[in-house]
Simulated assay, not measured.
Amino acid sequence: MSRAFVNEDAGADRPDLPELPVPPGPNIVTPRGLAALHAQIARRQLDLAALKDRPDRLDKLPEAAAERDLRWLEARLKAAVVIDPAGHDLSEVAFGLAVTVSDPDGRETTYEIVGEDEADATRHRIAPNSPLARALLGAQVGDVVTWKRPSGPIDLEIVRIAHADP
């Protein structure tokens, strides 16, 4: 068959992008995390509208990516279960609370246990399924927990449990 009769652009209107994997089960979030999820959806909707308003729309990949991202974000929103830590009594480490720990050198660090989508290591916000959060959950002030890190275990003393900043 001659190459003149082959449509090399077939399917170019709708690029096939793999879907982003949506974790099974509920998406546990703090009220701040729920607000952030709504904000991400609004931003991505604006991005998609701007992409569709482009005068030159030959490249459909950015639009397809925005639509895929919106499907993922909306699935995360649909699965969201909000846990408001304001009701916690601060007697033990729980989801949404800030916990300050002291390492063997006496350095104190405060971590906040938040939903998976809210986790941010640079802000010391950790997901509840992380090894550190699993070690901290349920502990009380004065308890020593062992954080099993890849570089080796470390003992941390719970110094303070508080409500996180909004």
Rank of each mutant, 00 (worst) to 15 (best):
Arg14Leu: 15
Asp9Pro: 10
Ala36Trp: 09
Leu37Phe: 11
Arg14Tyr: 14
Arg14Asp: 15
Asp13Ser: 15
Arg57Cys: 07
Asp9Cys: 14
Gly25Asn: 01
Asn27Glu: 10
Gln40Ala: 03
Leu46Pro: 05
Pro21Gln: 01
Pro21Ser: 05
Thr30Gly: 04
Leu58Pro: 03
Ile41Asp: 00
Asp59Gln: 06
Ala64Asn: 01
Pro24Gly: 06
Leu37Ser: 03
Arg57Val: 07
Gln40Asn: 03
Gln40Arg: 05
Ala42Asn: 07
Asp9Tyr: 15
Leu17Lys: 03
Leu20Phe: 11
Pro21Tyr: 07
Asp53Val: 01
Asn27Tyr: 09
Lys52Ile: 08
Asp59Phe: 06
Ala12Ile: 15
Ile41Gly: 09
Ala50His: 13
Asp59Thr: 04
Ala10Glu: 15
Gly25Asp: 00
Gly25Gln: 05
Gly33Ser: 13
Val6Thr: 00
Arg43Lys: 13
Asn27Leu: 09
Pro23Ser: 08
Asp13Glu: 15
Pro26Phe: 10
Val29Phe: 13
Pro23Ile: 09
Gly25His: 05
Lys52Gly: 02
Gly33Ala: 12
Leu48Asp: 09
Thr30Gln: 03
Arg54Val: 01
Lys52Phe: 02
Ile28Phe: 09
Asp59His: 10
Asp9Ala: 13
Arg44Met: 14
Arg57Trp: 08
Ile41Trp: 03
Ala42Tyr: 10
Ile41Val: 06
Asp53Ala: 02
Pro18Cys: 12
Gly11Glu: 02
Pro15Trp: 02
Lys52Ser: 00
Arg57Ser: 07
Leu20Pro: 11
Thr30Cys: 10
Leu58Arg: 07
Arg43His: 13
Leu48Thr: 06
Asp53Ser: 07
Leu37Asn: 02
Gly25Thr: 00
Gly25Glu: 00
Gly11Phe: 00
Arg32Trp: 09
Ala10Thr: 14
Asp9Ile: 12
Pro62Cys: 03
Lys52Asp: 04
Asp56Gln: 02
Leu48Phe: 12
Ile41Glu: 02
Asp56Gly: 04
Ala49Met: 01
Ala49Gln: 02
Lys60Tyr: 12
Asn7Val: 08
Glu63Cys: 11
Val29Asp: 04
Leu37Glu: 08
Thr30Lys: 07
Val29Gln: 05
Ala64Val: 01
Pro15Val: 08
Ala35Leu: 15
Pro23Ala: 13
Ile28Lys: 06
Ala36Asp: 14
Asn27Pro: 11
Pro15Phe: 03
Gln45Leu: 10
Leu34Asp: 03
Leu34Ile: 04
Pro18Lys: 00
Thr30Glu: 01
Pro23Trp: 07
Ala42Glu: 12
Arg14Val: 15
Val22Ser: 02
Leu51Arg: 05
Pro24Asn: 05
Gln40Ile: 02
Asn7Thr: 06
Ile28Tyr: 05
Leu61Tyr: 12
Arg44Phe: 14
Ala10Phe: 14
Gly33Asp: 04
Pro23Cys: 03
Leu61Arg: 09
Leu48Ala: 03
Pro55Val: 05
Val6Ala: 03
His38Ala: 04
Ala39Ser: 07
Ala64Pro: 00
Ala12Val: 11
Leu34Phe: 01
Lys52Ala: 04
Arg44Thr: 12
Ala12Gln: 14
Pro26Ile: 11
Arg32Phe: 15
His38Arg: 05
Lys60Thr: 13
Lys60His: 14
Ala39Lys: 08
Thr30Val: 02
Asn7Leu: 06
His38Asn: 08
Arg54Gly: 01
Ala10His: 07
Leu61Cys: 12
